[in-house]
Amino acid sequence: MLITGAAGKAGTGVRPLLRARGHELVLLDLTPIDAQPGERAITGSFTDEATLSDALNGVDAVVHFGGYSREHLWSNLLDINISGTNAVLDAARRAGVRHVLLASSTHAVGYHPIPSIPVHDLPPRPDSLYGVAKVAMEALGAVYADRYDMTVVSARIGTVEDRPRNLRSLSTWLSYSDLVRLIEATTALDLPGSHTVWAISANTRRWFDISNGQGIDYYPEDDAEFAAAEIFEPGAPGNGLIGAEFADPEHELGVPW
Rank of each mutant, 00 (worst) to 15 (best):
Y130M: 08
Y130P: 05
Y176T: 00
I117M: 15
S177M: 11
A133G: 10
L170Y: 09
R163F: 13
V180F: 10
H107S: 14
R181N: 10
V109W: 01
R163G: 04
V132W: 03
D121Q: 13
A139C: 07
L129H: 06
Y148E: 02
Y111S: 14
R168D: 02
L140C: 03
E138G: 05
S171P: 03
H107M: 12
A136S: 13
N166P: 00
P164Q: 05
H120Q: 08
D121W: 10
R156K: 12
I157L: 12
V152A: 07
H120R: 12
P124G: 09
S154R: 03
L122V: 09
R125W: 08
G131Y: 03
Y148G: 02
V109Q: 06
P126R: 08
P126A: 11
Y111Q: 12
I183P: 00
D178H: 11
D146M: 10
M137Q: 14
Y130T: 03
D146Q: 15
V153H: 02
P123M: 03
R147T: 14
I157N: 01
H120S: 11
R165W: 15
L122D: 06
P113I: 09
A145L: 06
G110P: 03
V143P: 05
V153G: 01
V180H: 09
T159W: 14
Y111F: 15
K134V: 08
P113G: 04
L170G: 07
R181G: 04
R181H: 07
V109P: 01
T151K: 09
P164M: 04
T159Y: 10
V119Y: 01
V153A: 01
R165L: 14
D121H: 13
I117L: 14
K134D: 02
E138D: 14
S116D: 14
S154E: 03
H112F: 04
G158F: 02
M137C: 08
V160E: 12
D178T: 12
L140D: 04
S128Q: 03
I114E: 03
E138Q: 07
G110W: 06
L140R: 02
M150V: 09
D146S: 13
Y130H: 08
P118N: 08
H112R: 00
D162N: 12
P123K: 09
S169I: 04
D162V: 11
Y144F: 13
I157T: 06
A155M: 02
V119L: 03
S171H: 11
S116E: 15
G131H: 04
L174H: 05
T172R: 00
R147Q: 12
I114F: 02
N166G: 04
S128D: 05
H107I: 07
V119I: 15
L140G: 00
P126I: 04
W173K: 07
I117F: 15
P126S: 11
V143M: 13
M150H: 10
V152W: 02
H112Q: 04
L122K: 08
L129K: 00
S154H: 05
R147A: 13
H120F: 15
R165H: 14
H112C: 05
N166I: 00
I117S: 14
V180T: 09
R165Q: 15
